[in-house]
């Protein structure tokens, strides 16, 4: 598995196909996060924007190899391991983005409530922001795993489904991503920080399930 992860990571880095999703996230951040804005609001925005980007990174990683090359690796290691390595590589890339975005927001945000009246403790706020960002990275990875091959093989289905699913996961009340982002935004209103790993745990469980389905189908559907 280590060798596969190394291979997939090298494939991602050298293909430069990480560049468009990275630029999209950079644009999201440039538009939505500015110096001196309430830090919890910015964490919420940075996390929510990461979800579709993480889904896009999964698409990049699972479609990075031509089918013939994928078959060669799959014969050696098993199709599900090849698929898992691709998805985990994408998740690692989104986690790097989550950490980087959290650091930027913590650095330039104003550690006060939305009306700038109540002080917000920066470290706990950063912890809450990081948890939300990683939860969104995880759920975006899950969306990407379910909306690309082997489940949806044509681009015409995969891309619109990814966009739709990303919005649903952000907006539907029961989603851990929605809970994490809403927690940050409402916390910003009253200047309170509530560090809970519940959204992260929920996101991890849902994503593990989604990725397991995709990996299990990798040898059943081309």
């Amino acid at each position: 598995m280590t060798a596969l992860l190394r291979y997939q990571a090298a494939l991602l880095l050298r293909s430069h196909r990480w560049l468009p999703p990275l630029l999209l996230y950079g644009a999201f951040m440039a538009v939505g996060v500015q110096s001196g804005q309430p830090v919890l609001d910015s964490f919420g925005y940075a996390s929510a924007a990461l979800l579709p980007v993480a889904a896009w990174l999964v698409r990049v990683c699972v479609t990075n190899e031509p089918a013939a090359a994928r078959d060669c690796a799959a014969a050696a290691a098993g199709p599900w391991r090849v698929h898992l390595a691709a998805v985990l590589t994408a998740l690692a890339a989104s986690t790097v983005l989550a950490v980087a975005a959290t650091a930027v927001v913590a650095g330039i945000g104003d550690p006060r409530s939305a009306d700038h009246q109540v002080d917000v403790p920066l470290w706990p706020a950063t912890a809450e922001g990081l948890i939300a960002a990683v939860a969104c990275a995880l759920l975006g990875t899950g969306v990407g795993a379910l909306c690309n091959r082997p489940l949806l093989r044509s681009t015409a289905w995969a891309v619109p489904s990814t966009v739709l699913a990303a919005f649903l996961v952000l907006l539907v009340g029961v989603s851990p991503a929605n809970a994490a982002v809403t927690g940050l935004v409402s916390g910003s209103r009253d200047g309170t920080v509530d560090v809970s790993v519940l959204p992260l745990a929920g996101a991890a469980v849902l994503t593990a399930g989604a990725v397991a389905v995709a990996c299990a189908l990798s040898s059943r559907r081309r």
């Binding site: 060798a3 596969l4 190394r6 291979y7 090298a10 494939l11 050298r14 293909s15 430069h16 190899e65 031509p66 013939a68 090359a69 078959d71 060669c72 690796a73 799959a74 014969a75 050696a76 290691a77």
Partner: peptide, 24 residues
């Protein structure tokens, strides 16, 4: 497994790719 056609649009050198596959 060796496929009939190997249109390897992969960002590796021949040696780099084979080394990676060997490690897999």
């Amino acid at each position: 497994y060796v496929p009939e056609r190997f249109p390897a649009a992969l960002p590796f050198t021949a040696l780099g790719y084979l080394t990676d596959i060997g490690r897999v």
